[in-house]
């Protein structure tokens, strides 16, 4: 299992765990659940050799995103910068949030930090994390006597 983690203080919202439960149950019935309360929204795929993570980061300059790996935890960190040229009083509607974000995911195995690849296309980040060679299962030959 993979366990997405977050640094934000979840203790501030007593209903958070309930929302999460609701979301998990909804996910059992639907393919996925569009309203995600965390930025960026993540998807994860795994195979015995690698993990692929995708994240929706519209409006984030790829230069402002940091992907770091410590052991089996991968962290996405970055900032969506505000367009400072717009005076606040000229907004009719403001729904796109700006600021710093960070999300971490614990992976099922350690990954080769040097071989992690990340690319960004149309506001979607895709990170490929190959499994560390030393953690791959080894086949043990059984000799018949």
């Amino acid at each position: 299992m993979l366990y997405p983690m977050t640094r934000f203080d979840w203790t501030l919202d007593p209903f958070r765990e309930l929302h999460r439960l609701q979301r998990d149950i909804n996910r059992l019935f639907a393919g996925w659940n569009p309203p995600v309360d965390q930025f960026p929204a993540l998807n994860l795929w795994s195979s015995p050799d690698e993990v692929v993570l995708t994240a929706e980061i519209p409006g984030v300059d790829p230069k402002d995103v940091d992907v770091s790996v410590i052991g089996n935890v991968v962290t996405l960190e970055g900032e969506r910068k505000e367009d400072a040229s717009i005076p606040a009083e000229s907004f009719h509607r403001r729904e796109r949030e700006n600021g710093k974000f960070m999300r971490s995911v614990r992976l099922p195995y350690e990954v080769e930090a040097d071989k992690v690849q990340a690319r960004c296309e149309n506001g979607v980040l895709r990170v490929t994390l190959p499994r560390k060679e030393s953690t791959k299962p080894r086949r043990i030959a059984i000799h018949a006597e």
Binding site: L42, N43, L44, W45, S46
Partner: peptide
């Protein structure tokens, strides 16, 4: 060819 383990968007 990979197993989807967690999904928040699609």
């Amino acid at each position: 060819g990979k197993e989807l383990v967690y999904r928040e968007f699609g």
